[in-house]
Simulated scan of single mutants.
Amino acid sequence: MKLSVLVVDDEPIARQAILRLLRDDPDITEITECGDGQSAVEAIRAQSPDLVFLDIQMPAMSGLDVFRTVGFERMPATVFVTAYEQYAVRAFEANAVDYLVKPFSRDRFAHALARAKGRLAMPATTADASSHIIQALDALRRRDDYLERIPIRESEQVTFVDVDDIVWIKASRNTVLIHLPDRVHEMRETMASLAERLDPRQFARVHRSAIVNVRRVQTVHPWFNGYHVVTMDTGQKLRMSRYQQEAFLKLVSIQR
C-alpha cells in the first residue's frame, strides 16, 4: 500500500517528530506538512492526501475547524493528535476514532498508523468511519457549548463565577442559589435552564432542587428508604433522591 500523508501541527517540534517516524515507513511515498489550519485546508483540497495527522489545538483554525471546513465527504482518513485533552480522548475512544496523545512513543505511533492503514484497506468501512468521527466531533462541539463562567448580575455590576468553583446549586422558585466555598450568589434563572448549559460530566442532579459539582464530592453514604447523603468538600450535606440512580453511579465511580 503506497500512501501520501499530510502532517498538520502548529508546533514545529511535534510536526518533525511525526515526519521522522513517517520517513521510516516504506509505504509512505509522499509527505507534506502544514503549520496552520488554513494552509491545511488548502493542501487537502489541492493534493487529496490519503491520510492526515491533524493536531486538534491550533490557533485561529483548530483541527476540528479544518475537518468541518473541508467537509466530511472530502476529508481523508484522519488521525487526530491532541496534547491530552481528556474530553477529546474520551470522545475518540467512545467512537473508535484514531488519535495520538502528545508526547507519544514510537510504538503508539506505529499502532495508530497501522490502524489507519487497515481502515484505508477496507473502503467499505469509510462511511462507518465518517459516522464515528461525526459523533466524536459532535461530542466535542457540545462540550464547547457548555458554560465555563457564569455571569451574575448584582445591583449595577456583573460578577463572573468559574464553574469549577461551584460547590452546588439550589433551586429557589424562579431563581437558583449558586453555592461557592465562601459565598452564595442568587441568579435569576430556572434550574432546568441552567442544567442544560452545564457539562453533565462535571455536574449531576442529585435532587430535583439540587445540582452538585461532582469534582467537589467528598463522600456518598446510604441513608434509608433508598436515599443517600452526599457530603461536599465544604462539609455541606445534601440528600440524594432515590430516583437519581444515574447521578449516584457517577458519584460512586469518582470515589473508587
Results as ranks from 00 to 15, higher is better:
245 Q>L: 10
153 R>T: 15
173 R>D: 15
30 E>L: 01
18 I>S: 06
237 K>G: 04
136 A>L: 07
182 D>C: 06
66 V>Q: 01
73 E>T: 14
150 I>N: 06
60 A>H: 00
33 E>W: 05
148 E>T: 10
247 A>V: 04
150 I>L: 15
147 L>R: 06
154 E>Q: 11
239 R>G: 09
169 I>M: 06
55 D>K: 01
51 L>Q: 00
174 N>P: 13
38 Q>W: 03
137 L>P: 02
210 A>N: 08
234 T>Q: 07
149 R>C: 09
208 R>S: 15
46 A>D: 11
173 R>H: 11
251 L>H: 01
128 D>V: 10
109 F>R: 04
171 A>Y: 00
2 K>Q: 15
106 R>V: 11
245 Q>V: 12
78 T>I: 09
144 D>R: 00
170 K>M: 06
105 S>E: 13
256 R>P: 03
250 K>M: 07
143 R>A: 05
60 A>Q: 04
34 C>D: 05
2 K>F: 15
145 D>Y: 00
48 S>V: 13
128 D>Y: 00
69 T>G: 06
3 L>C: 15
114 A>I: 06
239 R>Q: 12
148 E>I: 08
64 L>K: 00
155 S>E: 09
207 H>Q: 08
149 R>A: 10
167 V>P: 01
98 D>K: 05
61 M>L: 10
81 V>L: 05
160 F>I: 11
88 A>E: 04
31 I>Q: 05
185 H>V: 02
124 A>W: 00
201 R>F: 15
139 A>K: 01
185 H>T: 02
73 E>I: 15
193 S>W: 14
234 T>K: 04
69 T>I: 11
116 A>P: 01
118 G>N: 00
156 E>A: 13
71 G>L: 08
114 A>D: 04
251 L>N: 01
97 V>A: 13
151 P>N: 13
89 V>N: 05
33 E>S: 13
17 A>K: 10
214 V>K: 07
170 K>D: 08
